[in-house]
Design a protein around this nucleic acid. Structure first.
Lengths: 233, 233
DNA sequence: GAAAAAATATGTTAAAAAACATTTTTTATT
DNA sequence: AATAAAAAATGTTTTTTAACATATTTTTTC
């Protein structure tokens, strides 16, 4: 269940370069209106179509941003980690959220009312520029993703997703095991394929010695070859 | 061939709400560094991977923004019309352009050096906010596009593209003929399908009375049914 | 205006991936 | 620990769409 959290977290401005741009006065203001909320695994944080009343930041855990298309088939747009922001696009465009956000695992988030976020964007040029740069990166990722998902074949798309997970979450201490444990269904929803095909193709990769599988734990054995498969489609 | 244009165009700040935010001093500055360039049909304006030295605005004609994926297959990201801006994302992210821009037809564009554009963004909050809103809209379009192109079948994708063209360019005086004349190949590159399939599916639509075809001119006869085909995938 | 080139049209075949079906394994619940 | 539920694995069939082939029409070039 969603609930207010009493546990203490570091204030926003100590967490990343975005919030570090705030002035003393702004920090006070934001401190007064920020809420800390925890969600349990798979709980929905916001729905596509909901009025964008807040912009959000992940504090702990991972958040899944996804759209539902034809026949409730899900497309994961982004997987977030601590200190990533979300919901900011809808706030800026003054539109409803255009995707769903759900707790990938138990997690804690900060949320700031839209009005306060927009006030900061308009009042503080450095803050605004930071948000812009984040959005510019997200836009590039989205455009690249469109081409990857439409033009590459299943193997290429799956390899692409595995490499994206490596880039985003890195490895465990062994420098091989993906530091992100996810069900095959999510891997499928990232890669625009059915769960069956994600499972099948992943076992093929294992048979070819590109990865090794231990339940949900994936070890990346041949990153170079995966990159090649991804590149060639 | 690309060439400097001597013909007179209205100054930027009279053209749309973005440039209207500039102060007198900024207008002078920009006026000194803006260049007017004309491109002939299908000429490349910038390549993916080129250093983002300018942000651009269409003055006359249409511009095609596209990416090349596997095997040089093209995906059209956006089709622009006068007063639309492009190349701004790469300038803000301080990255190379992530797509190609080419003249869809003979056209004239303004271009502003990246440094000047960034200076404006940082100095003028209203200008910055306008750019942000444009980017927020483009990001939403890109995310929707990803799901459309990956989940819908050929008929749904083609219907979607036709409706997008209607929305973007409108109709001729007859209120039926699409005010945008484009080869089937571009329609295919918008819709993630082969040219053959765009041609075939378009003739099917014609046979079903949804559109009528007169060479490259497309009359939309049953927008409601096209919307239904698009919606159901 | 004739020839060449490009675009459109349409039929056929092959490849890719979804859909469906069933079994096995893992995880959660009592 | 036993049972139920969920996830993973894997084989088969069907659908979708690309690839290929070829003819026709339209546009461009000389």
């Amino acid at each position: 269940m969603r609930r207010q959290v009493v546990e203490h977290f570091a204030p926003l401005w100590e967490l990343n370069s975005l919030w570090a741009t705030l002035t003393e006065a702004e920090r006070l203001e934001v401190g007064n209106v920020v809420e800390t909320i925890s969600y349990s695994k798979n709980e929905i944080i916001h729905f596509e179509g909901d009025e964008s009343r807040w912009m959000w930041m992940v504090l702990r855990g991972k958040v899944r941003i996804y759209k539902e298309g034809i026949g409730l088939r899900q497309q994961i747009i982004r997987l977030l980690k601590p200190y990533d922001i979300f919901g900011y696009r809808a706030c800026i465009a003054d539109e409803a959220y255009n995707s769903n956000a759900s707790a990938f695992e138990d997690c804690v988030v900060y949320r700031i009312p839209r009005a306060e976020f927009i006030r900061l964007v308009k009042a503080n040029g450095a803050f605004c520029y930071e948000v812009m740069q984040i959005m510019a990166k997200d836009l590039a990722i989205s455009e690249i993703q469109t081409v990857n998902l439409t033009q590459k074949h299943i193997r290429g798309r799956l390899a692409e997703s595995l490499l994206a997970l490596v880039k985003n979450y890195g490895f465990e201490k062994d420098e091989q095991t993906l530091a992100m444990v996810l069900p095959r269904e999510d891997l499928a929803n990232m890669s625009n394929m059915t769960t069956s095909n994600a499972i099948r193709t992943l076992s093929q990769f294992a048979q070819e010695g590109l990865v090794s599988l231990d339940g949900k734990h994936i070890r990346i054995l041949d990153e170079k070859e995966l990159a090649k498969i991804s590149r060639l489609g």
